[in-house]
Nucleic acid binder design. Sequence first.
DNA 1: ACTTGTCCTGTCATGCTGTCAGCTTACCGA
DNA 2: TCGGTAAGCTGACAGCATGACAGGACAAGT
Lengths: 215, 215
Amino acid sequence: MTGQVRTVDGRVAGRRGQATRQKLLDCLSEMLNSSPYRDVKVIDVARKAGTSPATFYQYFPDVEGAVLEIAEQMASESSSLSEVLEGRSWVGKAGWQTAQDFVDDFLDFWKKNDAILRVVDLGAAEGDKRFAKLRLKILNSATTPLTGSIKELQAKGRVDKDINPAAVSGALVVMLSGVTSQLKGFQTWGVKQADLRPTLAQLVHLGVTGKKPTK
Amino acid sequence: MTGQVRTVDGRVAGRRGQATRQKLLDCLSEMLNSSPYRDVKVIDVARKAGTSPATFYQYFPDVEGAVLEIAEQMASESSSLSEVLEGRSWVGKAGWQTAQDFVDDFLDFWKKNDAILRVVDLGAAEGDKRFAKLRLKILNSATTPLTGSIKELQAKGRVDKDINPAAVSGALVVMLSGVTSQLKGFQTWGVKQADLRPTLAQLVHLGVTGKKPTK
DNA sequence: ACTTGTCCTGTCATGCTGTCAGCTTACCGA
DNA sequence: TCGGTAAGCTGACAGCATGACAGGACAAGT
């Protein structure tokens, strides 16, 4: 299904080839964690992987191409985000717990993949469709079930009909992702980590149900 | 106060020098709007400004340094954001209007300075303190008065004591900025621009007051 | 015209990019 | 066991960006 892994010049990658390819991706991943995206050079990645730039170009067209690859691997892991909300209630104390769990899962995922997501965000914001698509895929794992929850509540008459479920859940998810990538900023505002999660859960609950949670 | 504008090698820039310096900044600004940050090269900026790379390096240490300069100019314009909330009410219909105006102003500002803010965000997220400080300065124009509003409401007993005003306003502002830089994503979710603003205003109102607005 | 200090650019050493030809290595069938 | 074939890697190279410097052009005052 996945099609065979191929080199830039069309060869089929074997076991050894896939290993070096993966090593390059891992090294790139590390570099993104430690240095600014703008300063990540092919030659550094290659050196770190104990190989030569020419080898890098055998597997990827450029740095961007390799980043896309990493991001794709990550995107397939993001589906776990959608499971948290399955069959969960948004009413009463259970609702408050749902909001908290959702926020926790999302924040953990985002923090873990911090560096790549930063680059994906940038690419998407700059109008690159491949990055935008990928970003969407990731965010969808969160927004789709959220939107579903809101629609359900609307159907039961618990939420006003005039609100747009997709817009609300999109905004909430963007909020969570934004907060994660700028955690340090919040520290400067004197906001402690411990205060942040409940605050976000509160906002999510408010956004979804339109009501303050019962704690 | 601002100190004289100086070249990298310490000379004082005269009238002509400041003009070319500004021209370089303008051209860089344009380039950021049209091409990915990673691909912006000194040589292109210089060419576009009708000068040579050497001239660029006379005024700025590197591309990043020049971006910081642009961002600083923008940051001083951001103070206008704090004026919208002065003396505004968060109660009843007036409150709904306040939320809408706030969202409108913020979105307009963010959209206007889209490209630079993207880079500032990236720099801050990557841990560069200069960018983080700048970003804070800009966001503070929005969060400070928002936080103030929430504190006032708390003092009047209209908002629960156990919420953290700084955390809430920070999260809301991050939400607004995130939504703006990813507008295209929302279109893909089938959310129209016209739906987005009221949705965001609603969320801001909910976050600040804990109650649904009376429209 | 001369001096002074600002302003700009030609030039150069250095380093990264991206491509190619060609060498080495692993696998497989006879 | 022995080629044959395709995968895998790299040295070499041309092209371009970087960043530093020295020196020439220019404007303004004397």
